[in-house]
C-alpha cells in the first residue's frame, strides 16, 4: 500500500485552515513533497485535486454554519475565504444546486450533501489492494420479501431483523439477501431498514413478511472489500468521491446492500455489494 500519511498530514492542515489562508504550496510542505509531486500524489490518493478538496470542505462547513448560526451570508463567505458574497454564492450554487439563502430557508441538510473530512481510515480503506471499482448497471425490478423496522440504532436494528427473518423464512428458502435502508426525504436521521430476501414469486410468502420491489433503473454496484463494519467507508467513497467524479447523483433516498446467497447472520461470512439507484447530475 502506498504511504498515505503524508497526504493525510496535508488533509489535517486543510482542516485546521478551513477559515484561514492556505496555499497548495503549504499543503505540499505539510506532506513533505514538492508541489508538483504533491498534486500528483494527492489526486491519486484522494481523487480530487487539493484545491477542489479544499473548496468542497469549505463549502460544506459554510453550509453547516448557515443553518446553525444566524450570521449574515457575507460574513460566512468571508469567514471561509471566499472573498465576496458573489464568489461564495456562485461556488455554493455549483456545489449544492441552490443559493445560500435558499439553503438557509430550507433549513435541512440533505443526506450525504456535505463532504466530510477524509479520515486516514477511509484513505487506507480505498487504497487497500484489490479495492474494487464501481460499475454502472441497468437493473430490472427485484421483488423482495422481508421484515422492516424504523432504524434507531442501525447495526442493532439490522441484526435483530435478520435474526427474525431467519426464523420467519421457510427452510430452504434460498434466494439472494438484501439489506435496504430507505430514508425519509428531508428528514435526515430517520430511516427504515428492510432485511429481505429476493423471491421470484413473492405471493407465496405473505404475513408477517413485507413485500418491496426495487425499481428498475440505473444503479451503481460496488463490491465491498473488507469487514462489514467498514461498509460506511465504502459508502463514503461512493457518495463523496465516485459519484461526483462520475457526474451522478442518487436517484432515490435509499441504500441497498446485496449479500448474495449468504445471509448476514450465522456462521457463513457474508460478502456484500452496495447498490445505489443513480441518475445523471
Amino acid at each position: 500500500m502506498r504511504d498515505l500519511l503524508p497526504i493525510y498530514r496535508a488533509i489535517e492542515l486543510i482542516e485546521a485552515r478551513l477559515r484561514g489562508e492556505i496555499s497548495v504550496t503549504e499543503m505540499a510542505a505539510a506532506a513533505g513533497y514538492s508541489l508538483f509531486h504533491f498534486i500528483r500524489a494527492f489526486d491519486q490518493a484522494v481523487y480530487h485535486t487539493p484545491y477542489d478538496y479544499l473548496m468542497r470542505r469549505r463549502l460544506s462547513e459554510a453550509a453547516r454554519d448557515l443553518l446553525r448560526s444566524d450570521q449574515r451570508v457575507v460574513d460566512i463567505a468571508l469567514d471561509y475565504r471566499f472573498g465576496s458574497h458573489e464568489t461564495f454564492s456562485r461556488a455554493f450554487k455549483r456545489f449544492f444546486g441552490m443559493q445560500p439563502v435558499q439553503w438557509r430557508d430550507r433549513g435541512v441538510i440533505p443526506r450525504r450533501a456535505l463532504t466530510p473530512p477524509l479520515s486516514l481510515a477511509c484513505l487506507e480503506h480505498i487504497h487497500q489492494p484489490g479495492f474494487p471499482r464501481p460499475e454502472i448497471i441497468e437493473m430490472g425490478p427485484r421483488h423482495l420479501v422481508g421484515l422492516m423496522s424504523p432504524v434507531t440504532d442501525q447495526p442493532e436494528t439490522a441484526a435483530q431483523l435478520w435474526r427474525s427473518l431467519g426464523r420467519a423464512l421457510p427452510p430452504q428458502a434460498g434466494g439472494s439477501y438484501f439489506g435496504v435502508t430507505a430514508y425519509l426525504d428531508g428528514q435526515p436521521g430517520e430511516a427504515f431498514y428492510l432485511a429481505a430476501v429476493e423471491m421470484p414469486a413473492p405471493d407465496k410468502y405473505s404475513l408477517p413478511l413485507a413485500r418491496q420491489t426495487l425499481p428498475e433503473g440505473k444503479y451503481i454496484r460496488m463490491a465491498h472489500c473488507g469487514a462489514l463494519e467498514t461498509l460506511p467507508l465504502t459508502l463514503d467513497f461512493l457518495y463523496h468521491i465516485w459519484l461526483p467524479k462520475a457526474r451522478l447523483r442518487p436517484a432515490l433516498p435509499m441504500e441497498i446492500i446485496a449479500y448474495g446467497d449468504a445471509p448476514p447472520w450465522g456462521d457463513r461470512g457474508a460478502s456484500a455489494a452496495v447498490l445505489l439507484p443513480v441518475e445523471l447530475k
Partner: peptide
C-alpha cells in the same frame, strides 16, 4: 490547470 484534475480519475491518464 491542474494536470491531475481529471473527470475520469479511474485511469492513469492525466
Amino acid at each position: 490547470g491542474d494536470p491531475f484534475d481529471s473527470s475520469d480519475a479511474w485511469t492513469e491518464e492525466n
